[in-house]
Amino acid sequence: MTCQGGNEAHDPGGIVFRIVHKRQLSDVVFEMGVEAPRVARKVRAGQFLILRVDRDGERIPLTFSDWSAEEGWVRFIFMRVGKTTHALSHCEIGDELTDLVGPLGTPTHVGDLGRVAVVGGGVGAAVAYPVARAMLEAGDDVSVILGARTADLLVLEDEFRAIEPTRLVVTTDDGSAGVKALVTTPLKELCEAGEIDLAFAVGPAIMMKFCAATTKECGVPCIVSLNPIMVDGTGMCGACRVSVGGETRFGCVDGPDFDGHLVDFEELMSRQRVYVEEERLSDSEYSKECSCRL
């Protein structure tokens, strides 16, 4: 595994994190596979990894979307939004990532859930997909609600279809694919019809907030998979603190799954915005750098 101090001198060799798969799912959404045999042996649905693209890079968390213990690789899906995901989108098969660590977080509980509505919003679909698959494999009944702002941001629809959920509902905000609605509309219908015992929602914080509110009204429990800002992902910094039922929990080790009815979403959204200015600066410096290189 790659390893370095500040002088970046020693690299004792061993396993390298080589990119073995890359697929563009839409204009801005990519799927990537990386060789990481030890990690691949351990992953379970709902867990995440942290990677760095290069030696000046930030540590960013991404959820495992797929993995093969036999072949020793893991996959994840990311949307190109900031500097790190831009740089990542420029990596090609055969390139090596500087770091990849995992699996982190507590796996999603599956198997005795009954009828579940798995709701994936935007790239949240990348988390929803392995979770839905694990639930189906464990014998749960799974309905999938897949939502995005517009058709181009809709990902993994074919993959979801292939695992044969009980139903698959697609929504877009602008009606460019599936039903013109927010994910909460079909969710509410399923809850009211008494068709589900549990909802599992993952996507932007605001979407999870509304899924939690919708299910709460109907008295259906709702698990949400949170995405707070992280640094180490192992419980040593507390950057990922979230308030759940009035208690502070660490998103990276106690989560990422929490009881949606108890999560303080306002706090989560506020904490996610702490570095917006810095991110803007980082992105603009990066685009300057890119245009220089061209």
Partner: peptide, 25 residues
Amino acid sequence: VDSEIDMLVQMGVKIECDTVVGATL
């Protein structure tokens, strides 16, 4: 710190980073 660690590497000590014991192993 790095130079001191280099000395250990020089002595044949292998260092595998990115390995969380309790998670990766």
